[in-house]
Design a protein around this nucleic acid. Structure first.
Length: 936
DNA sequence: CCTGTCACG
DNA sequence: GACGTACGTGACAGGG
């Protein structure tokens, strides 16, 4: 039964095309298994639609809803202006066939689906929004398209579904500087490069808003254009009047589209399970259909597996995808069954292994169980430390659950297999499991690691966690650990999970790992990254494990004394700040500080960020500090606050009670360029630049009788740039051991080296770094705090003197645009899926593309050094402890300091060879001392 | 959970 | 005076 649309009703209008394009760009090019039909955009679209429907609960839920699509490419706007949207790129080939399917998907979710030949979706949305408003109801437009901001107001709002941000009249003001009713005026002037709306040349949104606010509306402005003071602006408006008026017609949405339906037709309906399931099954969306089926309480459709198709008569070698069946996993309870699994692993030559533990810190947690998988769909779980009773018993029991073997017995059987050189052990993130097993006396080898394979194959395309990989490459959503453990305060540890449940979760992980391995292994060759995986990834993992387990000694007393000193200084500064402000406030709150500075004290230069708050970053405060004491004190306070909370306080909590040392964790797949990341704690950002901060390094000490040594590559990225871009002048300077920044300065500013001043040198230094980062006039200007034009002059001069750099940058960008990835000298691929994007993403991607081969090659070189290091120093009483991108830190017995420096330096300086012979020497500087501050 | 801020190379 | 911009990370605090 239909009800009328009126007061109390809430209409949702979804911009269908926006959903589709977001889905298309967010997902890899998935295809339907049975016939290879491109299906990624449909999958993403359905996920978004589903997530949207799920979110529709509570008082704000819509009563009416529709998804609106564009139909055809010719609209009445093309009749007015044949270049309208003319610079749009053609729809990607693999997206076109998915268009009708997105309509089917919408109908399958039982949501009204509307489009009209000759009108854009925006016009239909405009018409419906106005109808809803006139009927006294509300309307939410789910889109972030600024073209629709003209509709906001009077009960109409927009919602950016991805950012989950509502856009109301204030939001429109923020974007356009005018209210919704004047948005078209501003757009008419500013034009729109995306839609190819011409506007007035040389006038952007800022200027347009200024003019409209001054003259009231576009027509008045154009009529009175002769009154404008700026001659250029005045002439532009007079000369381009017709074009501006046309632009307004183009951006003005048609609120009277002749619709063949009414608001009443859009009433929200529950999905009909059968229709929805049929569609999802047809698309072969296993994960989604299962998830939705579970939620609405129906049976998930059975989706047949693809027949293994033979290509060119040859047998298909793609592993056949068996369905995931948690009931098929085995709970291993006795020695006989375990020995059977062990024997099968040995016979097969490989086995996927996963360990379950009581937590995340591999230096602390206990082993709870082990899982094995040898065939897809077949896996077992061997529990060793599950406790009795969990759910019903608040404290749990300390008694062991039934059906388990002892850890000792299990490892007695598995150790020979895990250490068997002829059996490959496959892990997802082997470093974690191997460290656990090492603590139980098992040295696992040889290994493969699906996480590292994914990193070698897909860096830049996706993250490399198991859940993400399973969804992306197996279309299977694994059981979430949270469903077993809960979250927050009430979370339990894995040893409290009932074994029946643990079997399903844990064994599935081993199953997934095995399937991913089968999928990725042939890919390594096809993508030509086998060498990267085998020489830069796999062998590094055990080296990192070793470093992490060794840890670095940190002196708690030193830190604690510093904490106290910082606290005192901060208290003093805080009192001063409150005094200067004339009121008490939270100095640590940027929001409160902004109000004090710019509202209460009325200082100039307050800029609001996108959340409407004033920006109070260090650069802002530094500018203010020249005139005022308060911002200067805040800067001091902030520095101390950072040092105290992040370093002197937090670091103490990371001292392992058993070892008295700090054990960081390196994330080998953390940075797309090949760099490592360090977490828990991050030991790659210990302060060094400020005197006060550097003292924190005094707390990193050597054991008595030992010394810390630090070796770091000198200007490694610039050397690599000189080599890759083949800049003879730079290369020669490095060969001659010259001061490279001074030499650059001399070349650029025609200053003889003897007469070089620190100021000129430091400018050249900034430019040298800028080049590595993908230089821009704006960025350099900000860095050097000089006018933009001046910065641009420097850059131009730099390119004149070193034309090879410009060539390198252009070639690298072109390569990236063609191949969608860039490469290091050692063959590491860093994917750049955004490189051909339009809009603001483009700049980011192209600078990242310029930087990645340089940063990545440097990362590869130090990796090679680290991999060779254990063998090189094995006869020395020395341990490698830390890596900080271009620096390695060792702890060594006092007697062997010089020997270790000599050996480690040789390894580091020769690390590129023999794979690559650089045209420039690599130079390593060394330091030593009782603590890191002295050694660095 | 997200954002701003700031520590490092 | 179109637009937004240096590259790569992780941790902490505030605030909704």
């Amino acid at each position: 039964m239909e009800t009328g649309f009126g007061k109390g009703c809430h209409l949702h209008l979804i911009d269908g095309s926006a959903f589709i394009f977001r889905a298309y760009h967010a997902l890899p090019p998935l295809t339907r298994k049975s016939d290879g039909l491109p299906i990624g955009a449909v999958a993403g679209f359905c996920n978004m639609l589903h997530r949207y429907v799920e979110g529709n609960t509570g008082a704000d839920a819509p009563t009416h809803v529709a998804v609106i699509f564009d139909k055809g490419s010719h609209t009445f706007r093309n009749d007015m202006y044949d270049l309208y949207k003319a610079n749009r790129e053609a729809m990607p080939e693999d997206l076109r066939p998915q268009m009708p399917l997105t309509r089917e998907a919408t109908r399958a979710f039982n949501i009204a689906c509307k489009e009209m030949e000759g009108w854009e979706a925006d016009d239909i949305i405009a018409t419906l929004a106005v109808q809803a408003r006139e009927a006294g109801g509300r309307c939410t437009i789910i889109s972030s398209d600024k073209d629709m901001m003209q509709l906001v107001g009077g009960g109409v709002e927009m919602l950016d579904a991805m950012k989950n941000r509502r856009i109301d009249v204030d939001g429109v003001h923020e974007k356009f500087g005018v209210g919704p009713e004047r948005v078209v005026d501003v757009q008419a002037l500013a034009g729109d490069s995306v839609d190819n709306v011409p506007g007035a040349p040389g006038i952007g949104i800022k200027t347009a808003a200024l003019l409209i606010n001054e003259y009231g509306d576009l027509e008045t402005l154009l009529d009175r254009a002769t009154e404008i003071k700026q001659p250029k602006r005045r002439q532009t408006l007079i000369d381009n009047r017709a074009q501006i008026e046309l632009s307004k017609k183009l951006v003005q949405l048609d609120e009277n589209t002749p619709l063949d339906f009414t608001l009443e037709d859009l009433e929200v309906k529950d999905p009909e399970p059968e229709a929805l399931m049929t569609f999802l099954a047809e698309m072969e969306f296993r994960t989604l259909s299962k998830r939705i089926a579970d939620q609405i309480g129906v049976e998930a459709p059975v989706i047949a597996d693809a027949p293994a198709k033979a290509a060119d008569g040859a047998a298909a070698d793609a592993p056949e995808d068996k369905p995931f069946d948690p009931e098929a996993y085995e709970w291993v309870k006795d020695r006989a069954r375990l020995e059977d699994w062990a024997a099968r692993a040995v016979a097969k030559g490989y086995v996927a292994v996963d360990t379950e533990t009581t937590g995340l810190d591999d230096m602390v947690v206990d082993l709870v169980g082990v899982c094995l998988s040898i065939e897809p769909g077949e896996a077992c779980y061997i529990p060793v430390a599950h406790k009795k009773g969990a759910a019903d018993d608040l404290f749990g029991s300390e008694e062991m659950a039934e059906g388990q073997m002892s850890v000792d017995e299990v490892l007695e059987v598995l150790k020979p297999v895990l250490e068997d050189a002829s059996v490959l052990k496959i892990f997802q993130n082997a470093k974690y499991d191997c460290k656990i097993l090492k603590r139980y006396g098992v040295s696992v080898a040889p290994i493969d690691d699906t996480m590292l394979m994914s990193y070698a194959l897909q860096a830049g395309l996706n993250r490399h966690g198991m859940d993400a990989l399973s969804e992306l490459y197996l279309s299977h959503q694994p059981i979430s650990i949270k469903t077993l453990l809960g979250t927050g305060k009430s979370a339990i540890t894995f040893d409290r999970v009932p074994i029946e449940d643990a079997v399903k979760y844990a064994a599935e992980d081993a199953d997934i790992t095995l399937r991913l391995w089968q999928k990725f292994k042939p890919q390594l060759h096809q993508q030509q990254v086998t060498t990267v995986y085998e020489t830069l990834e796999r062998p590094l993992s055990p080296v990192l494990a070793e470093m992490e387990m060794h840890g670095v000694k940190v002196d708690r007393d030193t830190l604690s004394r510093m904490s106290n000193a910082f606290a005192q200084k901060m208290a003093g500064l805080e009192a001063e700040i409150h005094d200067l402000a004339g009121e008490n406030f939270n100095v640590g709150s940027p929001a409160q500080l902004g109000e004090i500075l710019f509202d209460k004290m009325g200082l100039e230069g307050g800029k609001r960020g996108k959340n409407g708050k004033y920006s109070t970053g260090a650069d802002v405060l530094e500018d203010l500090a020249t005139e005022n004491d308060l911002p200067a004190r805040v800067l001091d306070w902030r520095q101390l606050s950072k040092l105290k909370s992040t370093y002197t306080d937090a670091l103490q909590d990371h001292i392992n009670p058993d070892t008295g040392r700090v054990h960081t964790s390196y994330v080998q797949t953390g940075a797309n360029t090949g760099r490592l990341a360090s977490t828990d704690p991050n030991l790659q950002n210990i302060p060094v630049r400020s005197e006060e901060g550097r003292r924190i390094r005094e707390a990193f000490v050597a054991e008595p009788g030992k010394t810390l040594i630090s070796l770091d590559y000198s200007q490694v990225e610039l050397r690599i740039l000189a080599h890759i871009a083949d800049i003879e002048a730079l290369k020669q300077a490095f060969r001659d051991g010259q001061d490279i920044h001074a030499m650059t300065a001399s070349e650029m500013f025609d200053v003889p080296m003897e007469e070089m001043t620190p100021e000129v040198r430091s400018r050249a230094k900034a430019i040298n770094f800028g080049v590595i980062y993908g230089i821009s006039g704006f960025g350099l200007a900000r860095n050097l705090r000089i006018p933009r034009g001046e910065a641009q002059d420097f850059i131009n001069r730099y390119f004149e003197r070193f034309p090879g750099i410009r060539t390198y940058m252009d070639d690298t960008k072109a390569f990236a645009k063609e191949h969608l990835y860039v490469q290091t000298l050692f063959g590491r691929k860093i994917h750049m899926p955004q490189i051909n994007a339009k809009g603001p993403h483009a700049g980011f991607a192209s600078r990242a593309a310029i930087n990645a081969p340089i940063q990545g090659t440097a990362a590869d070189i130090i990796r090679r050094a680290m991999i060779r290091m254990p063998e090189a120093i094995k006869d020395l009483p020395a341990k490698m402890l830390l890596q900080v991108h271009d620096e390695l830190i060792f702890e060594v017995e006092d007697s062997a300091v010089d020997d270790t420096i000599a050996v480690a330096r040789a390894v580091m300086e020769g690390a590129a060879e023999p794979a690559i012979k650089l045209d420039v020497p690599l130079i390593v500087d060394a330091g030593q001392g009782q603590n890191w501050a002295e050694a660095h």
